[in-house]
Design a protein around this nucleic acid. Structure first.
Length: 412
RNA sequence: GGGCGGGUACCGAAGUGGUCAAACGGGGCUGACUGUAAAUCAGCUGGCGUCGCCUACAGAGGUUCGAAUCCUCUCCCGCCCA
Protein backbone atom coordinates (compact mmCIF):
# COMPACT_ATOMS: atom_id res chain seq x y z
CA UNK A 1 0.00 0.00 0.00
CA UNK A 2 1.11 3.50 -0.66
CA UNK A 3 1.53 7.03 0.58
CA UNK A 4 2.30 8.43 3.94
CA UNK A 5 -0.60 10.81 3.96
CA UNK A 6 -0.48 14.19 5.64
CA UNK A 7 -1.87 14.04 9.11
CA UNK A 8 -5.53 14.93 9.22
CA UNK A 9 -7.52 16.86 11.77
CA UNK A 10 -10.49 15.84 13.87
CA UNK A 11 -13.01 16.86 11.23
CA UNK A 12 -11.53 14.43 8.73
CA UNK A 13 -10.86 11.63 11.18
CA UNK A 14 -14.22 11.78 12.90
CA UNK A 15 -16.30 11.99 9.74
CA UNK A 16 -18.99 9.36 9.78
CA UNK A 17 -18.64 8.41 13.42
CA UNK A 18 -21.76 8.03 15.50
CA UNK A 19 -20.67 8.19 19.11
CA UNK A 20 -17.55 9.91 20.35
CA UNK A 21 -16.61 10.00 24.01
CA UNK A 22 -14.95 12.20 25.15
CA UNK A 23 -15.23 14.33 22.00
CA UNK A 24 -13.52 17.44 23.35
CA UNK A 25 -10.66 15.47 24.76
CA UNK A 26 -10.17 13.44 21.63
CA UNK A 27 -10.35 16.43 19.30
CA UNK A 28 -7.69 18.17 21.34
CA UNK A 29 -5.40 15.17 21.21
CA UNK A 30 -5.85 14.81 17.47
CA UNK A 31 -4.97 18.44 16.98
CA UNK A 32 -1.91 18.05 19.18
CA UNK A 33 -0.26 15.93 16.52
CA UNK A 34 0.37 12.99 18.84
CA UNK A 35 0.31 9.53 17.33
CA UNK A 36 -2.46 7.66 19.07
CA UNK A 37 -2.82 3.97 19.80
CA UNK A 38 -6.09 3.16 18.11
CA UNK A 39 -7.52 -0.09 19.39
CA UNK A 40 -9.79 -2.36 17.40
CA UNK A 41 -10.75 -5.78 18.68
CA UNK A 42 -11.88 -8.63 16.52
CA UNK A 43 -13.32 -11.86 17.76
CA UNK A 44 -12.37 -14.74 15.52
CA UNK A 45 -15.67 -16.42 16.26
CA UNK A 46 -16.33 -17.33 12.64
CA UNK A 47 -13.80 -18.16 9.94
CA UNK A 48 -14.74 -15.28 7.68
CA UNK A 49 -15.30 -11.61 8.01
CA UNK A 50 -18.02 -9.85 6.10
CA UNK A 51 -18.69 -6.38 4.78
CA UNK A 52 -20.11 -5.26 8.10
CA UNK A 53 -16.71 -5.76 9.68
CA UNK A 54 -15.07 -3.60 7.06
CA UNK A 55 -16.91 -0.46 8.16
CA UNK A 56 -14.75 0.11 11.23
CA UNK A 57 -11.74 -1.24 9.36
CA UNK A 58 -12.07 1.53 6.81
CA UNK A 59 -11.94 4.14 9.55
CA UNK A 60 -8.96 2.32 10.96
CA UNK A 61 -7.24 2.75 7.65
CA UNK A 62 -7.97 6.47 7.52
CA UNK A 63 -6.44 6.92 10.93
CA UNK A 64 -3.55 4.77 9.92
CA UNK A 65 -2.85 7.00 6.94
CA UNK A 66 -3.00 9.99 9.25
CA UNK A 67 -0.15 8.61 11.27
CA UNK A 68 -1.93 6.84 14.11
CA UNK A 69 -1.19 3.29 15.07
CA UNK A 70 -3.92 0.67 14.77
CA UNK A 71 -3.63 -1.97 17.47
CA UNK A 72 -5.54 -5.03 16.42
CA UNK A 73 -6.59 -7.30 19.22
CA UNK A 74 -7.24 -10.87 18.29
CA UNK A 75 -9.87 -11.88 20.79
CA UNK A 76 -8.72 -15.43 21.14
CA UNK A 77 -10.17 -15.60 24.65
CA UNK A 78 -13.35 -13.62 24.33
CA UNK A 79 -14.21 -15.37 21.07
CA UNK A 80 -14.68 -18.45 23.14
CA UNK A 81 -17.25 -16.68 25.28
CA UNK A 82 -19.02 -14.97 22.44
CA UNK A 83 -19.85 -11.31 22.62
CA UNK A 84 -23.34 -10.98 24.10
CA UNK A 85 -23.85 -7.64 22.31
CA UNK A 86 -27.19 -7.63 20.58
CA UNK A 87 -27.65 -11.25 21.44
CA UNK A 88 -30.86 -12.73 22.71
CA UNK A 89 -29.25 -16.04 23.53
CA UNK A 90 -25.96 -17.35 24.78
CA UNK A 91 -23.60 -18.18 21.97
CA UNK A 92 -22.28 -21.65 21.49
CA UNK A 93 -18.86 -22.20 22.97
CA UNK A 94 -16.01 -22.47 20.52
CA UNK A 95 -13.09 -24.75 21.04
CA UNK A 96 -9.56 -23.45 21.27
CA UNK A 97 -8.77 -25.11 17.97
CA UNK A 98 -11.66 -23.48 16.14
CA UNK A 99 -10.66 -20.08 17.44
CA UNK A 100 -7.06 -20.65 16.37
CA UNK A 101 -8.08 -21.65 12.86
CA UNK A 102 -10.37 -18.66 12.57
CA UNK A 103 -7.76 -16.25 13.84
CA UNK A 104 -5.33 -17.40 11.19
CA UNK A 105 -7.61 -16.58 8.29
CA UNK A 106 -8.90 -13.42 9.90
CA UNK A 107 -5.82 -11.27 9.70
CA UNK A 108 -5.30 -12.10 6.11
CA UNK A 109 -8.79 -10.79 5.43
CA UNK A 110 -8.33 -7.73 7.58
CA UNK A 111 -5.29 -6.78 5.58
CA UNK A 112 -7.38 -6.52 2.48
CA UNK A 113 -8.48 -3.20 3.97
CA UNK A 114 -5.87 -2.25 6.54
CA UNK A 115 -2.23 -1.70 5.63
CA UNK A 116 -0.32 -4.60 7.21
CA UNK A 117 2.90 -2.58 7.37
CA UNK A 118 1.88 -0.20 10.11
CA UNK A 119 -0.14 -2.09 12.70
CA UNK A 120 0.46 -3.74 16.00
CA UNK A 121 -1.23 -7.12 16.24
CA UNK A 122 -1.80 -8.49 19.71
CA UNK A 123 -3.52 -11.56 21.06
CA UNK A 124 -5.47 -11.71 24.27
CA UNK A 125 -3.64 -14.90 25.14
CA UNK A 126 -0.53 -12.77 25.68
CA UNK A 127 -2.08 -11.43 28.87
CA UNK A 128 -4.85 -13.89 29.57
CA UNK A 129 -2.77 -16.98 28.93
CA UNK A 130 -1.59 -17.15 32.54
CA UNK A 131 -4.13 -14.89 34.19
CA UNK A 132 -4.53 -16.03 37.77
CA UNK A 133 -7.71 -16.32 39.74
CA UNK A 134 -6.46 -13.40 41.82
CA UNK A 135 -6.29 -11.33 38.68
CA UNK A 136 -9.76 -12.38 37.64
CA UNK A 137 -11.14 -11.33 40.99
CA UNK A 138 -9.31 -8.05 40.86
CA UNK A 139 -10.80 -7.37 37.45
CA UNK A 140 -14.26 -8.47 38.56
CA UNK A 141 -14.10 -6.02 41.43
CA UNK A 142 -14.03 -3.11 39.00
CA UNK A 143 -17.71 -3.38 38.20
CA UNK A 144 -21.01 -4.17 39.86
CA UNK A 145 -23.68 -6.58 38.73
CA UNK A 146 -26.13 -3.72 38.42
CA UNK A 147 -23.76 -1.92 36.07
CA UNK A 148 -23.42 -4.96 33.89
CA UNK A 149 -27.14 -5.58 33.83
CA UNK A 150 -27.78 -2.07 32.61
CA UNK A 151 -26.98 -3.01 29.10
CA UNK A 152 -30.03 -3.42 26.98
CA UNK A 153 -29.47 -6.95 25.76
CA UNK A 154 -28.96 -8.35 29.25
CA UNK A 155 -31.90 -6.42 30.58
CA UNK A 156 -34.04 -7.76 27.78
CA UNK A 157 -32.94 -11.33 28.32
CA UNK A 158 -33.67 -11.01 31.99
CA UNK A 159 -37.13 -9.71 31.24
CA UNK A 160 -37.78 -12.55 28.79
CA UNK A 161 -36.58 -15.03 31.37
CA UNK A 162 -33.82 -16.24 29.13
CA UNK A 163 -30.49 -17.46 30.46
CA UNK A 164 -27.49 -15.21 30.90
CA UNK A 165 -24.26 -17.02 31.54
CA UNK A 166 -22.05 -15.72 34.31
CA UNK A 167 -19.16 -15.78 31.87
CA UNK A 168 -21.08 -13.45 29.59
CA UNK A 169 -21.19 -10.88 32.35
CA UNK A 170 -17.42 -10.98 32.31
CA UNK A 171 -17.13 -10.21 28.62
CA UNK A 172 -17.17 -6.41 28.84
CA UNK A 173 -14.57 -6.53 31.57
CA UNK A 174 -12.25 -8.73 29.59
CA UNK A 175 -12.57 -6.49 26.58
CA UNK A 176 -11.99 -3.54 28.86
CA UNK A 177 -8.85 -5.04 30.32
CA UNK A 178 -7.45 -5.40 26.82
CA UNK A 179 -7.33 -1.63 26.77
CA UNK A 180 -5.21 -1.72 29.91
CA UNK A 181 -2.93 -4.37 28.48
CA UNK A 182 -2.16 -2.44 25.34
CA UNK A 183 -2.53 1.07 26.78
CA UNK A 184 -5.13 2.16 24.28
CA UNK A 185 -5.68 5.84 23.60
CA UNK A 186 -8.80 5.33 21.55
CA UNK A 187 -11.02 2.35 20.92
CA UNK A 188 -13.17 1.83 17.88
CA UNK A 189 -16.22 -0.35 17.35
CA UNK A 190 -19.69 -0.54 15.87
CA UNK A 191 -22.50 1.27 17.65
CA UNK A 192 -23.54 -1.99 19.30
CA UNK A 193 -20.17 -1.98 21.03
CA UNK A 194 -20.72 1.26 22.91
CA UNK A 195 -21.31 -0.41 26.25
CA UNK A 196 -18.18 -2.53 26.02
CA UNK A 197 -16.09 0.38 24.79
CA UNK A 198 -17.20 2.62 27.61
CA UNK A 199 -16.47 -0.13 30.07
CA UNK A 200 -12.90 -0.05 28.87
CA UNK A 201 -12.65 3.50 30.19
CA UNK A 202 -13.77 2.39 33.63
CA UNK A 203 -11.45 -0.57 33.70
CA UNK A 204 -8.50 1.56 32.67
CA UNK A 205 -9.15 4.10 35.36
CA UNK A 206 -9.57 1.34 37.94
CA UNK A 207 -6.08 0.24 36.99
CA UNK A 208 -4.76 3.76 37.34
CA UNK A 209 -4.47 4.42 33.64
CA UNK A 210 -5.77 7.36 31.60
CA UNK A 211 -9.15 6.63 30.07
CA UNK A 212 -9.31 5.86 26.42
CA UNK A 213 -11.60 7.80 24.14
CA UNK A 214 -14.29 5.88 22.34
CA UNK A 215 -15.48 6.10 18.77
CA UNK A 216 -18.29 4.15 17.11
CA UNK A 217 -19.25 3.77 13.49
CA UNK A 218 -22.66 2.82 12.05
CA UNK A 219 -23.64 -0.79 11.76
CA UNK A 220 -24.04 -1.98 8.24
CA UNK A 221 -27.54 -3.16 7.48
CA UNK A 222 -27.61 -6.64 5.99
CA UNK A 223 -28.98 -7.79 2.65
CA UNK A 224 -32.47 -8.03 4.10
CA UNK A 225 -32.39 -4.25 4.49
CA UNK A 226 -33.59 -4.59 8.06
CA UNK A 227 -31.22 -6.12 10.54
CA UNK A 228 -27.52 -5.62 11.01
CA UNK A 229 -25.29 -7.67 8.78
CA UNK A 230 -24.50 -10.91 10.47
CA UNK A 231 -23.49 -14.29 9.28
CA UNK A 232 -25.95 -16.00 11.54
CA UNK A 233 -28.80 -13.93 10.14
CA UNK A 234 -27.78 -15.10 6.72
CA UNK A 235 -27.75 -11.58 5.32
CA UNK A 236 -24.02 -11.12 4.98
CA UNK A 237 -21.55 -10.71 2.13
CA UNK A 238 -18.25 -12.35 3.01
CA UNK A 239 -15.06 -10.65 1.93
CA UNK A 240 -13.67 -13.95 0.71
CA UNK A 241 -16.64 -14.99 -1.33
CA UNK A 242 -16.20 -15.27 -5.09
CA UNK A 243 -16.77 -12.08 -7.06
CA UNK A 244 -19.90 -13.40 -8.74
CA UNK A 245 -21.41 -14.36 -5.43
CA UNK A 246 -20.67 -10.99 -3.87
CA UNK A 247 -22.03 -9.16 -6.86
CA UNK A 248 -25.25 -11.14 -6.99
CA UNK A 249 -25.87 -10.70 -3.30
CA UNK A 250 -25.27 -6.98 -3.53
CA UNK A 251 -27.74 -6.71 -6.39
CA UNK A 252 -30.39 -8.22 -4.16
CA UNK A 253 -29.98 -5.38 -1.70
CA UNK A 254 -33.13 -3.29 -1.26
CA UNK A 255 -32.83 0.03 -3.06
CA UNK A 256 -33.01 2.01 0.16
CA UNK A 257 -29.59 0.72 1.16
CA UNK A 258 -27.71 1.67 -2.00
CA UNK A 259 -26.52 5.02 -0.71
CA UNK A 260 -25.59 3.79 2.77
CA UNK A 261 -23.51 1.05 1.18
CA UNK A 262 -21.75 3.50 -1.11
CA UNK A 263 -20.95 5.54 1.92
CA UNK A 264 -19.94 2.80 4.32
CA UNK A 265 -18.29 0.11 2.25
CA UNK A 266 -16.84 1.78 -0.81
CA UNK A 267 -14.13 4.40 -1.14
CA UNK A 268 -16.50 6.78 -2.89
CA UNK A 269 -15.68 10.35 -1.78
CA UNK A 270 -18.39 12.01 0.32
CA UNK A 271 -19.05 14.68 -2.28
CA UNK A 272 -19.71 12.06 -4.94
CA UNK A 273 -21.96 10.09 -2.60
CA UNK A 274 -24.02 13.23 -2.03
CA UNK A 275 -24.23 13.90 -5.74
CA UNK A 276 -25.33 10.35 -6.56
CA UNK A 277 -27.84 10.33 -3.73
CA UNK A 278 -29.37 13.52 -5.07
CA UNK A 279 -29.56 12.11 -8.58
CA UNK A 280 -31.19 8.97 -7.29
CA UNK A 281 -33.75 10.94 -5.31
CA UNK A 282 -34.50 13.08 -8.38
CA UNK A 283 -34.95 10.04 -10.58
CA UNK A 284 -32.03 11.05 -12.78
CA UNK A 285 -30.25 7.78 -12.26
CA UNK A 286 -31.86 4.38 -12.38
CA UNK A 287 -31.66 2.54 -9.04
CA UNK A 288 -30.44 -0.58 -10.79
CA UNK A 289 -27.57 1.29 -12.43
CA UNK A 290 -26.51 2.90 -9.18
CA UNK A 291 -26.75 -0.41 -7.40
CA UNK A 292 -24.57 -1.93 -10.07
CA UNK A 293 -22.02 0.83 -9.63
CA UNK A 294 -21.98 0.25 -5.90
CA UNK A 295 -21.72 -3.51 -6.30
CA UNK A 296 -18.85 -3.21 -8.74
CA UNK A 297 -16.95 -0.91 -6.43
CA UNK A 298 -17.40 -3.23 -3.50
CA UNK A 299 -16.36 -6.30 -5.43
CA UNK A 300 -13.39 -4.50 -6.96
CA UNK A 301 -11.93 -3.88 -3.52
CA UNK A 302 -11.59 -7.58 -2.93
CA UNK A 303 -11.15 -9.04 -6.39
CA UNK A 304 -9.98 -6.18 -8.59
CA UNK A 305 -11.81 -4.11 -11.17
CA UNK A 306 -11.53 -6.76 -13.87
CA UNK A 307 -13.25 -9.40 -11.80
CA UNK A 308 -15.93 -6.92 -10.77
CA UNK A 309 -16.73 -6.07 -14.37
CA UNK A 310 -16.79 -9.73 -15.28
CA UNK A 311 -19.15 -10.46 -12.41
CA UNK A 312 -21.45 -7.67 -13.57
CA UNK A 313 -21.47 -8.99 -17.12
CA UNK A 314 -22.15 -12.50 -15.93
CA UNK A 315 -24.97 -11.30 -13.74
CA UNK A 316 -26.58 -9.44 -16.63
CA UNK A 317 -26.31 -12.48 -18.83
CA UNK A 318 -27.83 -14.82 -16.33
CA UNK A 319 -30.55 -12.84 -14.68
CA UNK A 320 -31.41 -9.97 -17.02
CA UNK A 321 -31.07 -11.94 -20.25
CA UNK A 322 -32.00 -15.20 -18.56
CA UNK A 323 -29.11 -17.00 -20.16
CA UNK A 324 -26.80 -19.73 -19.02
CA UNK A 325 -23.85 -18.94 -16.82
CA UNK A 326 -20.47 -19.09 -18.53
CA UNK A 327 -19.49 -22.10 -16.49
CA UNK A 328 -21.94 -24.89 -15.85
CA UNK A 329 -21.00 -27.72 -13.54
CA UNK A 330 -21.17 -31.11 -15.19
CA UNK A 331 -22.39 -34.37 -13.87
CA UNK A 332 -22.04 -37.77 -15.46
CA UNK A 333 -25.07 -40.05 -15.53
CA UNK A 334 -25.71 -43.40 -17.13
CA UNK A 335 -27.42 -43.07 -20.48
CA UNK A 336 -31.06 -43.85 -20.85
CA UNK A 337 -34.52 -42.59 -19.94
CA UNK A 338 -34.97 -41.86 -16.27
CA UNK A 339 -37.70 -40.97 -13.88
CA UNK A 340 -37.41 -37.18 -13.50
CA UNK A 341 -37.10 -37.53 -9.74
CA UNK A 342 -34.15 -39.85 -10.11
CA UNK A 343 -32.70 -37.52 -12.65
CA UNK A 344 -32.82 -34.64 -10.19
CA UNK A 345 -31.37 -36.57 -7.29
CA UNK A 346 -28.87 -38.33 -9.52
CA UNK A 347 -27.66 -35.01 -10.84
CA UNK A 348 -27.20 -33.82 -7.29
CA UNK A 349 -29.73 -31.02 -7.67
CA UNK A 350 -32.33 -32.42 -5.31
CA UNK A 351 -31.52 -33.71 -1.83
CA UNK A 352 -34.41 -36.15 -1.86
CA UNK A 353 -37.02 -37.54 -4.19
CA UNK A 354 -39.68 -35.78 -2.18
CA UNK A 355 -38.03 -32.45 -2.77
CA UNK A 356 -37.65 -33.33 -6.44
CA UNK A 357 -41.36 -34.07 -6.62
CA UNK A 358 -42.19 -30.73 -5.02
CA UNK A 359 -40.11 -28.89 -7.55
CA UNK A 360 -41.73 -30.81 -10.37
CA UNK A 361 -45.15 -29.80 -9.07
CA UNK A 362 -44.01 -26.21 -8.78
CA UNK A 363 -42.92 -26.12 -12.39
CA UNK A 364 -39.38 -25.33 -11.38
CA UNK A 365 -37.65 -27.99 -13.44
CA UNK A 366 -36.44 -27.54 -16.99
CA UNK A 367 -34.50 -29.91 -19.20
CA UNK A 368 -33.03 -27.73 -21.92
CA UNK A 369 -36.01 -25.65 -22.98
CA UNK A 370 -38.69 -28.13 -21.93
CA UNK A 371 -40.41 -27.87 -18.59
CA UNK A 372 -40.73 -31.14 -16.73
CA UNK A 373 -43.87 -31.80 -14.73
CA UNK A 374 -45.00 -34.25 -12.08
CA UNK A 375 -46.73 -36.42 -14.66
CA UNK A 376 -43.72 -37.02 -16.84
CA UNK A 377 -42.86 -40.68 -16.62
CA UNK A 378 -39.49 -41.35 -18.14
CA UNK A 379 -37.49 -38.61 -19.72
CA UNK A 380 -34.56 -39.02 -22.00
CA UNK A 381 -31.67 -36.62 -22.25
CA UNK A 382 -28.71 -36.27 -24.49
CA UNK A 383 -25.10 -35.67 -23.72
CA UNK A 384 -24.80 -31.96 -22.98
CA UNK A 385 -28.39 -31.35 -21.96
CA UNK A 386 -28.84 -28.74 -19.28
CA UNK A 387 -31.02 -29.59 -16.31
CA UNK A 388 -32.09 -26.70 -14.14
CA UNK A 389 -34.17 -25.99 -11.10
CA UNK A 390 -35.11 -22.36 -10.87
CA UNK A 391 -32.50 -19.96 -12.15
CA UNK A 392 -29.64 -20.70 -9.84
CA UNK A 393 -29.43 -24.47 -9.66
CA UNK A 394 -28.29 -26.11 -12.84
CA UNK A 395 -25.99 -28.76 -14.23
CA UNK A 396 -24.94 -30.02 -17.62
CA UNK A 397 -25.60 -33.72 -18.04
CA UNK A 398 -22.98 -35.96 -19.54
CA UNK A 399 -23.74 -39.50 -20.43
CA UNK A 400 -21.42 -42.39 -19.77
CA UNK A 401 -22.34 -45.82 -20.92
CA UNK A 402 -19.46 -47.45 -19.11
CA UNK A 403 -18.56 -45.11 -16.26
CA UNK A 404 -20.58 -45.21 -13.11
CA UNK A 405 -22.59 -42.17 -12.32
CA UNK A 406 -20.75 -39.97 -9.88
CA UNK A 407 -23.22 -37.36 -8.83
CA UNK A 408 -21.89 -34.34 -7.03
CA UNK A 409 -24.12 -33.34 -4.22
CA UNK A 410 -25.93 -30.07 -4.53
CA UNK A 411 -26.29 -27.78 -1.59
CA UNK A 412 -30.05 -27.72 -1.49
C1' G B 1 -32.77 -26.87 49.93
C1' G B 2 -38.27 -25.66 48.94
C1' G B 3 -42.19 -24.07 45.45
C1' C B 4 -43.73 -23.07 40.41
C1' G B 5 -43.37 -22.87 35.00
C1' G B 6 -41.03 -24.85 30.69
C1' G B 7 -38.36 -28.21 26.78
C1' U B 8 -42.65 -28.86 19.79
C1' A B 9 -40.15 -28.86 12.95
C1' C B 10 -34.38 -24.14 10.45
C1' C B 11 -36.01 -20.15 14.31
C1' G B 12 -40.09 -18.13 17.29
C1' A B 13 -44.61 -20.02 18.87
C1' A B 14 -49.80 -22.76 19.06
C1' G B 15 -51.62 -27.46 20.22
C1' U B 16 -52.97 -30.58 26.34
C1' G B 17 -55.92 -38.34 24.18
C1' G B 18 -57.93 -39.60 17.96
C1' U B 19 -59.85 -35.30 12.45
C1' C B 20 -51.46 -33.73 14.00
C1' A B 21 -46.23 -34.39 9.63
C1' A B 22 -48.49 -30.84 13.69
C1' A B 23 -52.12 -23.80 13.54
C1' C B 24 -49.67 -19.01 13.00
C1' G B 25 -45.29 -15.76 12.16
C1' G B 26 -40.25 -15.45 10.46
C1' G B 27 -36.69 -17.73 7.41
C1' G B 28 -35.77 -20.79 3.08
C1' C B 29 -37.33 -22.66 -1.79
C1' U B 30 -40.37 -22.25 -6.35
C1' G B 31 -43.78 -19.80 -9.81
C1' A B 32 -45.82 -15.23 -11.96
C1' C B 33 -44.15 -10.46 -12.63
C1' U B 34 -39.69 -7.33 -13.15
C1' G B 35 -34.57 -3.23 -13.27
C1' U B 36 -32.32 -7.62 -10.05
C1' A B 37 -31.00 -13.07 -6.44
C1' A B 38 -35.57 -6.01 -5.14
C1' A B 39 -40.90 -5.09 -4.20
C1' U B 40 -45.65 -7.50 -4.80
C1' C B 41 -48.89 -11.74 -5.29
C1' A B 42 -49.34 -17.19 -5.12
C1' G B 43 -47.64 -22.08 -3.87
C1' C B 44 -44.23 -25.31 -1.36
C1' U B 45 -41.30 -26.21 3.06
C1' G B 46 -39.58 -34.74 7.18
C1' G B 47 -38.60 -39.36 4.22
C1' C B 48 -40.08 -43.29 0.92
C1' G B 49 -42.26 -47.89 -3.12
C1' U B 50 -46.74 -40.74 -2.69
C1' C B 51 -54.44 -40.93 -2.38
C1' G B 52 -50.55 -45.56 1.35
C1' C B 53 -46.45 -46.44 4.59
C1' C B 54 -42.23 -44.99 7.79
C1' U B 55 -39.76 -41.55 11.06
C1' A B 56 -40.70 -37.16 14.23
C1' C B 57 -43.05 -33.10 19.17
C1' A B 58 -35.87 -33.35 25.15
C1' G B 59 -34.56 -38.97 26.60
C1' A B 60 -36.18 -43.85 28.51
C1' G B 61 -40.15 -46.70 30.06
C1' G B 62 -45.60 -47.23 30.92
C1' U B 63 -51.26 -46.60 30.48
C1' U B 64 -54.62 -46.89 26.13
C1' C B 65 -57.82 -49.74 20.47
C1' G B 66 -55.08 -44.97 19.86
C1' A B 67 -50.36 -40.07 22.94
C1' A B 68 -46.92 -34.21 21.06
C1' U B 69 -51.06 -34.47 24.46
C1' C B 70 -52.05 -38.95 30.55
C1' C B 71 -48.43 -41.57 34.32
C1' U B 72 -43.19 -42.75 36.12
C1' C B 73 -38.09 -41.89 36.01
C1' U B 74 -33.85 -39.17 33.74
C1' C B 75 -31.50 -34.91 31.44
C1' C B 76 -31.73 -29.57 30.39
C1' C B 77 -33.71 -24.34 31.08
C1' G B 78 -36.29 -20.16 33.53
C1' C B 79 -38.80 -17.72 37.73
C1' C B 80 -39.86 -17.12 43.03
C1' C B 81 -38.47 -18.17 48.24
C1' A B 82 -34.15 -19.53 51.27
Amino acid sequence: MNVAAPSAGPEELLRGVVDCVDREHLAARLRSGASLRFKFGIDPSAPDIHLGHTVPMRLLRRWQLAGHLPVLIIGDFTARIGDPSGRSATRPQLSREEVEANAATYLEQVFAVVDPERVEVRRQSEWYGDFSLDSVLELARTATVAQMLQRADFEQRLRQERPIGLHELLYPLLQGYDSVAIAADVELGGTDQLFNLLRGREVQSAYGMARQDVVTVPLLVGLDGQRKMSKSLNNAVGVREPAAEQFGKLMSLPDTQIVPYLELVTATPPAEVDRLAAQLAAGQVHPRDLKELMAKRVVAQFHGAGAADAAAAEFARRFRDRGLPSEVPEVVLPRGPMDPRDLLTGAGLAPSRSQAMRWLREGAVRLDEARLGPDDQLVDFRDGSVLRVGSRRLVRLRTASTAQAEPSRGDC
